[in-house]
């Protein structure tokens, strides 16, 4: 077997094992939270009778272990089950939310990844001069401000005062792509500002590291322009760390944006998961958890594979 295929297969099976572990952990942790779904649903309005009725109806009287294996059996056959709180099909409701989350993450990535790498290259080109310092100063400032604050500030000045973009990033099926893009302008802007610095700084550092090498000196002596040297000779050799940090940020754009979703009232997965946790809707929490874990593990695996492919030394191990 080709070593690459073998490696991918190894990584995949490890990933699946990790997913099992993650699902057991998520289940255990939600069980450990105080109260159960019946109490969470009824809240202050709970009476012993209504609690008992609801528990019976939700199937909460069965032991936790058997509920977990029921769920596991379902997911093996591709059935995510139904919410115990509002009894909607989980696959359907999660699907919609996941689509929205991926839509936002995709456009944020389309804007931020090329921009970050370009700014990183630019910073190296003008290393220690004012463009480098300006880029670092601005991106480090935006990453240091909590994202909800950036969100509120943008909403106030752009949406409320100038009428640019919309304060609520509501998207739904009946909207055209253009309308959707208009709706998510501000959240994409916020997410870009939040993830830019990390990727930009890593690009800068990785390339600067390579720039010390002898072959860069040779390229310079050949008379290539500085930007050409960076883009053609330094960048390909710095890909591995850059890909790693890009993937980490992509994962963040998918799984870590609940605050931005709340501020812009974006109907994504984050808010959905938070609701499910407060209502102790275990099947939904599990489904969301598994999807998040899968995305996280998948992207990290992709990063590993790309850095191996990009590095001849790793590509042909002795």
């Amino acid at each position: 077997m080709h070593p690459i295929i073998k490696l991918v297969a190894q990584r995949l099976s490890l990933g699946i094992l990790l997913l099992f572990a993650a699902s057991a952990m998520i289940f255990g942790l939600t069980e450990a939270l105080p109260g159960d779904a019946a109490q969470a649903v009824l809240g202050q309005a709970a009476t012993p009778e209504s609690l008992a009725n609801l528990r019976e109806e939700m199937g909460l009287n069965e032991p936790a272990v058997s509920r977990y294996f029921d769920w596991l059996g379902g997911i093996m056959t591709g059935d995510l089950g139904t919410s115990i709180v509002n009894r909607l099909d989980i696959a359907e409701s999660v699907g919609k939310r996941l689509g929205n989350t991926l839509f936002l993450a995709f456009w944020a990535a389309v804007v931020s990844v090329p921009l970050a790498i370009f700014l990183g290259l630019l910073a190296v080109r003008y290393r220690d001069r004012w463009p480098d310092k300006l880029i670092s100063a601005i991106t480090l400032t935006t990453i240091s401000i909590p994202e909800f604050l950036i969100g509120y500030v943008l909403v106030y000045f752009l949406a409320v005062k100038l009428g640019f973009g919309t304060a609520l990033a509501m998207v739904n099926d009946s909207m055209s792509l253009w309308q959707k893009l208009n709706a998510i302008t501000l959240p994409v802007l916020v997410l870009t500002l939040v993830v830019l610095a990390h990727m930009m700084r890593m690009t800068r550092a990785a390339i600067l590291n390579v720039m010390q090498s002898a072959y860069i000196e040779t390229a310079e002596l050949k008379g290539l322009s500085t930007f050409n040297v960076i883009a053609k000779h330094a960048f390909p050799n710095a890909v591995s760390p850059i890909v790693n940090v890009v993937m980490l940020n992509l994962a963040y754009l998918v799984v870590g944006v609940v605050v931005v979703e709340v501020v812009f009232v974006y109907p994504g997965m984050g808010q959905f998961l938070v609701d499910a946790v407060t209502k102790r809707d275990v099947p939904v929490v599990l489904a969301c958890g598994i999807i998040f874990a899968a995305i996280y593990i998948g992207l990290n695996m992709l990063a590993d594979i790309i850095s191996i492919l990009a590095n001849p030394r790793l590509r042909h191990p002795k």
């Binding site: 509120y152 909403v155 106030y156 949406a159 409320v160 009428g163 919309t166 304060a167 609520l168 509501m170 709340v262 501020v263 812009f264 009232v265």
Partner: peptide
């Protein structure tokens, strides 16, 4: 009827005329 749980977002939506 639009769910806007965050109070600042609710105010901003009213101010910008979205609700």
């Amino acid at each position: 009827v639009i769910a806007i749980n965050d109070s600042t977002a609710r105010t901003a939506a009213l101010q910008s005329g979205q609700v």
